[in-house]
Design a protein around this nucleic acid. Sequence first.
DNA 1: AATGTGACATACC
DNA 2: TGGTATGCCACAT
Length: 113
Amino acid sequence: MEQVKRNFFEDVFQVVRLIPRGRVTNYGSIAKYLGSGLSSRMVGWAMNASHVATTPVPAQRVVNRNGMLTGKHHFPTPTLMQELLEKEGVKVEKDKVVEFEKLFWDPAKELEL
DNA sequence: AATGTGACATACC
DNA sequence: TGGTATGCCACAT
């Protein structure tokens, strides 16, 4: 089942892997980068497939618009996501990234540069 | 083709 | 902070 899936998933994984250490991004920006029309749900869906994908995807760097770690429930342990982020230098408080705006990494801006 | 689903975004309470 | 409702679109069945 680890076939090539669709180019869509690979694109999402690729972008997530390109996120620098200690930085975070949100689903909407990734969706917008892949295609202006893609709704953010597609990114979340792609991440859902990340745990079956052959390639490692740092999904902990992907949070929602509010900077909240909404996807932590899908990690092996709900605390792992926060642990990984803090280990990279990202402060997390109440499941929310501190200074999210400062640590925000926009693919459409960074990659198009 | 139709239906169900989803780690979102936004609006509202 | 939390819940509910709607819109959005790709994928699985």
